[in-house]
Structures are given as structure tokens and as C-alpha cells.
Amino acid sequence: MNFLAVIGRITFSFLQAAGRLGVFAATSLSHMFSPPFYMRSLIKQMMTIGYYSLPVVGLTALFTGAALALNIYEGGSRFNAESALPSIVVIGIVRELGPVLCGLIVAGRVSASMAAELGTMRVTEQIDAMATLSTDPYKYLIAPRIIATTLMMPFMLVIVADVVGVMGGFLIATGKLNFNAGNYMSLTMDFLEATDVYASLTKAAVFGFFISLMGCYHGFYSRGGAQGVGISTTNAVVSACMLILLSNYIVTELFFAS
């Protein structure tokens, strides 16, 4: 009896949360496409989310590409397939590791800071104050963040992650594993297809949307002072990471499963 009641309560609160998130996402989307647009906020967000994430995204991609090249060389040598290294590195990075690692890093950086900032604004009544000053918080706070992240992920961060990741593999292969530089590059370019790049950018945009949606949603509905903001921040990062991994599988399936 009790057990059923618990299941029922959990199901109910899950549906309630899902419904609230759905309404939040729909409201945010409708505000993204209707004026007024706050260009100053948008540009500021693009700078903090895109430009200032570059160093950490670049370093992550560089070392991942390098480690990938070492692994594939060693693993491949067990059945004399070392020459497949350039193609495996480029596919691995562009289709999968570039967007996913970049997404996870940016989730840690950006959804956490969005949730903390909006959460603090919520508990100190700044969001209420904004509404009394003829400014819609969805337009001023949420829309610029979601637009900026959804654009900067594909058109800045993941492109950089892909290129730097491949470069990481290239540096190890030519510097340590005696590959010929020209040969390596031409193998890489020959193997890479337009679909791989489209998939990479699609993933990046989807991840960017989820990162900012989770950061804004959890921040916007924060309650209960500093502790509440801490909880929202954790929830934002965890849920963004889960959604990234889940949607990564779905986008991969849509693009490449035949």
C-alpha cells in the first residue's frame, strides 16, 4: 500500500516537474523570437559563453586528440592497422569527442554560472524588481542566454574543439609516431565527410540549447537562499550533462544508423 503511494507520489512530482520545464521551454522559445531584443545582453552573453570558454575547450580538445592518437596507434598495431590512425582520429573527434567533451565542459562552466546568477537574482528579488520596471525577465535574462549558447556552441566552440582535437592527434602522430605530415593531413581530409561536420554542429547546437535551458530553468526557479542556489547549481549541471549524453545518442542514431 505504502509502496504504491510512494510510487504514485514520485510519478506525480516527476510529471509536475516535466510539465513546468515544458512550459518554461515553450515560454522561453516564444520570447526568443518576439521583440524587444536586448542586443547588449546578447553580445555580453556571447562573449562570456563563447570567447571566455575557448581556453578550456581548446586544452581539453588538444589533450584528448593527443591521447586518442596514442591509443589508436598502440591498439591498431596489434593487427597492423596503424595506418588507419588519421581517419579514426578525425571521425572520433568530429563526430563524437569534440562535441560531447566540449558540451560537458561548457555545461560545467556555463550552466553552473547561469543557475547561480539567476538563482541569486531570484532569491534577492532582482527578478521581481525587473518585472516592475517594464522588463520581461524572459526577454532580458533568459532569451539572450539561450540564443548565445545555442549559437556559440556550434559556430565557435565545437569548431575549435574539432580542429584543435585533430591537431592534437596530428602533433603526436607526426612528432612521436613518425607519420609524414602531408600524408597525415591528406588522409584526414579524404576521410572526413560533410555529414560528419553537420552531425558535429547539430550536436553542438542541441547541447548548447540544453546547457542554457537547464542553467536558466534551475536558476529561475531557485528558492530558499544560498543553500537553494547551491542546489539549483548542482541540479543544472547534472541535468545538463545527462541531457547531453542522452541527446548525443539520439542525434548519432538519426545521422548514422542505417
Binding site: 546568477e117 537574482m121 534577492t124 528579488e125 532582482q126 521581481d128 524588481a129 525587473m130 518585472a131 516592475t132 520596471l133 517594464s134 522588463t135
Partner: peptide, 26 residues
């Protein structure tokens, strides 16, 4: 909303922008 002005209990100033932008926000 335009009819109302409100001084919040905790101030509720926007801390990401300077004082003058706070005052001129509306």
C-alpha cells in the same frame, strides 16, 4: 506595471550593472 514603483525590502538592485543603469533601468 507602469503605474507602480517599488522599493524592495532587500533593495533588489541589479548587481551586474552600475548604479546609474539601475536607476535608469525602467
Amino acid at each position: 506595471q507602469k503605474k507602480f514603483g517599488m522599493l524592495f525590502q532587500g533593495g533588489a538592485l541589479f548587481d551586474s550593472i552600475p548604479v546609474w543603469e539601475n536607476v535608469a533601468f525602467g
